[in-house]
């Protein structure tokens, strides 16, 4: 099963309430995915520095802070339970290499100028509370509640998957050609940290975007290249896009008002959103890419 949710703010009105809106959506999708949950929040970006979202697992935060501060001079750390957001001017290639070498027990769950990602195993309501999602502000956000099917219940197996700068992907469904595609993408230089099918789809999107294809065109090509059942929400710095496979077994419903666009697996995820009963509510049609902000 799995539940996916997303919210894109068309105006500034709800920017301070983005976390609250998204947490309500995730809480309401608990029934579709009780195994793990995660979310990506996009905030106005500061181009002068990068943000790295890390899961430090069982490391002691104080010790980690002390150790990393010795090696990288200019950096700011913010702790959210077992996740840490690091702000630094270090570039991704250099920083990721450094982390893999110096702190192999730390997982890098995402990076970019705008994105912050949090994901963990456990009941969505607990995960949302643990990371204090309600307190977040931002321009758009994407979330996922997971009912694990084809790979283990771990942090690495949780969504959203981020395989490129300020990119992320959540998925309801399953892919049948992910092993082949993973091999092909590895040959092209992509790296994968899990056996999960969605990570392959995220890698596919990143690969295409890095070849200067638009998000919309990438997802249109994906309809041919990704075999299986899916509703995807793909996020970038500017916005997000939604696509369902041609068979469209996996549900999705969109609510659009003058202030926001919300998407969820089921309407009940957005029943609490402001003015939703007057929103334009529709189902994304099979095989059509819907995009906002990009």
């Amino acid at each position: 099963m799995c539940g996916i949710v997303g919210i894109y703010l068309k105006t500034k009105k709800f920017e301070n309430k983005l976390g609250k809106m998204l947490s309500g959506m995730l809480n309401n999708m608990e029934s579709r995915g009780p195994d793990s949950a995660g979310f990506a929040i996009y905030k106005n970006s500061d181009k002068s520095e990068y943000k790295y979202s890390l899961c430090i697992n069982n490391l002691d935060f104080k010790k980690f802070k002390k150790d990393i501060s010795k090696k990288i001079k200019k950096l700011k750390l913010n702790q959210y339970s077992d996740h840490v957001i690091i702000k630094t001017t270090e570039t991704p290639k250099k920083f990721i290499n450094f982390m893999t070498k110096e702190f192999p027990e730390v997982s890098i769950v995402g990076y970019g100028h705008s994105i912050e990602i949090f994901k963990q195993v456990g009941n969505p309501k607990e995960v949302v509370k643990k990371f204090n999602l309600e307190s977040f502000s931002g321009t758009h956000g994407i979330g996922h509640t997971r009912m694990a099917t084809e790979s283990a219940i771990t942090t690495d197996g949780s969504h959203p998957y981020s395989t490129g700068e300020d990119e992320c992907l959540v998925h309801n469904g399953s892919l049948s050609n992910h092993n082949n595609l993973r091999r092909e993408l590895r040959k092209k230089g992509n790296t994968f940290t899990s056996e999960n099918d969605t990570e392959v789809a995220a890698g596919y999107v990143s690969n295409s975007l890095s070849n200067n294809n638009s998000l919309k065109n990438t997802l249109v090509s994906g309809l041919k290249d990704l075999d299986g059942f899916y509703t995807f929400i793909a996020g970038t710095r500017k916005g997000f896009a939604v696509v369902r496979d041609e068979i469209a077994c996996k549900p999705a419903v969109i609510a659009e008002t003058k202030n926001y666009v919300a998407i969820a697996s089921e309407f009940q995820a957005m029943a609490h959103l402001p003015d939703v009963n007057n929103a334009k509510i529709f189902e994304p049609e099979p095989g059509i890419v819907y995009s906002w902000g990009n």
């Binding site: 089921e266 309407f267 009940q268 009963n277």
Partner: peptide, 24 residues
């Protein structure tokens, strides 16, 4: 509020008006 199975399994002659969006 998008709840599932609202008014499922009714067997009598009733008139019911549901005001709002429902689930599955």
């Amino acid at each position: 509020e998008g709840n599932h199975a609202v008014c499922a399994g009714l067997t009598e002659e009733l008139n019911i008006n549901i005001k709002g969006h429902v689930g599955y």
